[in-house]
């Protein structure tokens, strides 16, 4: 038990940096650049930590606390996520509800910080984030509901390890992958939902909320986003991982490799596809909800009249 926890902790410290680096490297390779070093995020964080923050005179303590709340909630969600495809740091029944609601807490904190600046950009980003999340949560719960019905398990890491026997279970698996990928793209502010590299405030979602943060606060937000991406990627990886559930080195390495693959995939999508119009984003998220419904129907079919 203990070594797995330590391994999880180590992964939590290293992998967010690696995955962010991988995405950026993939994007620069696609656009014909050499790209920043793999651990650029670590250098950025160190640089930001050495600076001091500047606060708008409009803001209240809410603005100063929010980045750390975001960081905490990202770490809190990482505690229950199967980062290495097996037992997470802690696990309890219905920990996926905890994960969703802890993310909700972080989201609320950063939205309030955005409103705290009194700038219309902050309000705009917060409103978009809030609106998209109302569609995202149903998709997430359809998927975890379907998976836990399929597996009969109520913890995240067990539900993500279904026994693929026959058609319906396979349908659930595919639909879950589709929906979780969309969830990952929206939650971590990736293309085609949000453009993390844009320089036009009017089109931003996530970045526009953190325009006013600086110094260590900004570092906390960046690390939180990276952790969130790792959590999401590891959930997809566990679902893909044929050895998920076993606490062996091979299974863990495969999980890490799949995470890197997911990062490459996200980076590729980001390089090749344009951002959706804001009006079209809800429709894109509805695809995730629809896959969730398909997954639930298939799971119920598979479970049939079982007691």
């Amino acid at each position: 038990m203990m070594p797995v926890r330590l391994a999880n902790l180590a992964a939590l410290l290293v992998m967010p940096l690696v995955l962010t680096g991988v995405i950026n490297r993939v994007k620069s390779l696609w656009s014909g650049r050499k790209g920043p070093p793999l651990f650029q995020l670590a250098f950025d964080v160190v640089r930001l930590l050495r600076k001091s923050s500047v606060y708008s005179s409009t803001t209240t303590p809410v603005f100063r606390i929010a980045p750390y709340v975001l960081l905490l909630t990202a770490a809190g969600s990482a505690c229950v996520a199967p980062l290495l495809g097996s037992t997470p740091f802690v696990s309890f029944p219905f920990d996926f509800v905890w994960l969703a609601y802890v993310w909700g807490l972080g989201r609320m904190a950063i939205m309030l910080a955005a409103l705290d600046t009194g700038s219309s950009f902050g309000g705009m980003g917060a409103a978009r984030e809030a609106t998209f999340s109302t569609l995202l949560e149903p998709a997430l719960f359809f998927i975890v509901g379907a998976l836990s019905l399929l597996t009969g398990k109520h913890t995240l890491h067990e539900a993500l390890n279904p026994h693929l026997d026959g058609g319906p279970a396979f349908v659930v698996w595919v639909a879950a992958l589709v929906a979780l990928t969309i969830v990952l793209q929206v939650e971590t502010a990736r293309m085609p939902v949000d453009d993390p590299a844009t320089h036009l405030e009017l089109t931003m979602v996530h970045e526009v909320m953190v325009l006013d943060h600086s110094g260590p606060d900004l570092a906390a937000i960046q690390v939180a986003s990276a952790i969130k991406f790792f959590v999401g990627a590891s959930i997809i990886a566990t679902l893909l991982n044929p050895w998920a559930g076993s606490e062996t080195l091979a299974a863990a390495s495969l999980n890490v490799a799949i995470c890197v693959f997911v990062a490459i995939l996200i980076g590729t999508v980001e390089s090749l596809i344009a951002r959706l119009k804001l009006r079209a984003v809800p429709q894109y998220i509805v695809v995730a909800i629809a896959s969730g419904v398909v997954a639930l129907l298939a799971a119920a079919w598979r479970a049939g009249g079982a007691p």
Binding site: T60, G104, M108, L115, D116, G118, A130, F141, G145, A146
Partner: peptide
């Protein structure tokens, strides 16, 4: 039952939106 759970999740997310709006507009900014 799972659809009802999804409804509850939706309700939670909208409630975050409304409460962020209520608190943010009333107490934050100028």
């Amino acid at each position: 039952l799972i659809t009802a759970a999804v409804m509850l999740a939706f309700v939670g997310a909208v409630s975050v939106l409304s409460m962020t709006r209520a608190f943010g507009l009333t107490f934050l900014g100028n």
